Amino acid sequence: MIRQTVFPFKLQRSDETLTAHGGLALLAEYNHSLGLRTLADRHLPSPREK
């Protein structure tokens, strides 16, 4: 079982047609578990307003 951190979903096999964006939730979980948002906030400049 995968530990849930951001989204309350469970993985299971399905014969349904999936969209090309179906894996984005897993990528978001991965990024969250690595702490990428914190690292980006710390090391990248803030966006500038026009």
Rank of each mutant, 00 (worst) to 15 (best):
R48S: 15
R37A: 07
E16N: 13
H32V: 00
T5E: 12
R42A: 08
Q4H: 13
P45V: 07
Q4V: 14
T17L: 14
H32T: 06
Q4W: 11
R42M: 06
L36R: 06
L34F: 06
E49F: 13
G35W: 03
L18M: 11
E16D: 15
P8E: 12
N31H: 12
R48W: 08
K50V: 00
L26Y: 05
K50L: 05
L26Q: 06
S46W: 02
R3T: 10
S33G: 02
E49T: 15
L36Q: 05
L39F: 02
L36G: 01
D41C: 04
P47N: 07
R48M: 13
A40Y: 02
P45M: 09
L36T: 11
F7I: 01
P45C: 09
S14Y: 05
L27K: 04
K10L: 03
L44N: 02
R37W: 04
L27C: 03
F7C: 02
N31G: 09
M1P: 15
L39G: 04
T17V: 13
H43L: 08
K10W: 00
G22A: 15
A20Q: 15
L11T: 01
V6M: 12
L36V: 07
R3F: 04
F7L: 11
P47F: 09
F7R: 01
G35D: 04
I2W: 11
L44M: 08
G22C: 11
F9M: 07
P45L: 10
A40E: 00
K10C: 01
F7S: 07
H43A: 05
L27A: 07
E16W: 06
I2G: 05
N31E: 14
T38D: 10
G23I: 03
M1V: 15
H32E: 11
V6H: 08
M1Y: 12
L44V: 02
N31P: 03
A20V: 14
T19D: 15
A20E: 15
L39K: 08
R48Y: 08
V6N: 08
D41N: 09
G23N: 07
S14T: 15
T17C: 08
D15Y: 00
Y30F: 15
A20W: 13
R42D: 03
H21Q: 11
I2Y: 13
Q12T: 09
E29Q: 03
T38P: 01
L26A: 07
S46N: 05
A25V: 15
P45H: 08
L36D: 06
S33Y: 00
R3I: 10
S14M: 04
T5K: 10
D15N: 00
T5S: 11
Y30A: 10
R13S: 07
A20S: 15
R42S: 06
T38V: 03
Y30V: 11
R3H: 09
L39T: 05
L24V: 14
S33P: 01
R3E: 12
F7T: 04
S46F: 02
L34N: 05
T17M: 09
G35F: 03
F9H: 10
D41T: 03
